[in-house]
Amino acid sequence: MTPLIELRKVSKYFGPVVALKDIDMKVYAGEVHCLLGDNGAGKSTLIKALSGVYPPSEGQILMEGQPVVFRSPRDALDKGIATVYQDLAMLPLMSISRNFFLGREPKRRWGPFTLYDAAFAARVAREELRKIGIDIRDPDQPVGTLSGGERQSVAIARAVYFGAKVLILDEPTSALGVKEAAVVLKYIVQAKARGLGVIFITHNVHHAWAVGDTFTVLNRGRSYGTFKKAEVTREQLLQMMAGGEELEALSVELELIAKKDPSAAAQVEQRVAEDLHKPN
């Protein structure tokens, strides 16, 4: 089976900064591919390269086996890669239906004029949101009246409606409460069931583990590799995200603190102080 989208040795440099180095990744239709990594690991850079914000410095992106170059976010969108950004790309003061269709307005001819088909937009926005379980009274209400989880869901519904093959979700659950995050995770599974390839970026291993089929872990711009769910455990993923041994040391320290032993706590303090003075 050809992957929907494949990265081959993709690197991205910003001047002297190596943001990404030799990333390989394959995303298949009907799978949720989790991209894990701590802050600064290169997750955002990778999705920006994938969604056409900027081209990679080196390496190749293939869609369904064919090499592609995305000239702009719009170009990537037209080729079937929809990205739901962390900041949602939604305008709070704009109505739900207008947000839903921003950039891809439904058109209607009226004499010599091309009109924005507001009735169609309202109807489709309402229908699509009902499909994912959000009942809006009025598609003309501002997006600002929706909760964070609902906004996230509108953005996903929108991407699915416009025929995305690959859905990139940038930290969709990070700003949400437990229940709202669960709702968003449900839509991720729904999108997968519809045959989309979902790239789910997160630093929350629990969320990733709940819906993910494959996991790619980034650390400091490099990939630790891609793992099927059967091949790893949650703990291993966590460990890789934090950069391996560092986390082990930390967990020992945490245990010591947990015992609330004053002398142990003092030991930890001393070691942290020593670590700080050690040349890196």
Partner: peptide, 23 residues
């Protein structure tokens, strides 16, 4: 009533977000 009008709102509401969806 026109798509261009929607773009005007989009460009002013959040130029980056609008650009990302193709405005």
């Amino acid at each position: 009533r026109t798509p261009f009008g929607n773009w005007i709102f989009g460009a002013g509401g959040d130029a980056n977000a609008a650009r990302n969806v193709g405005v």
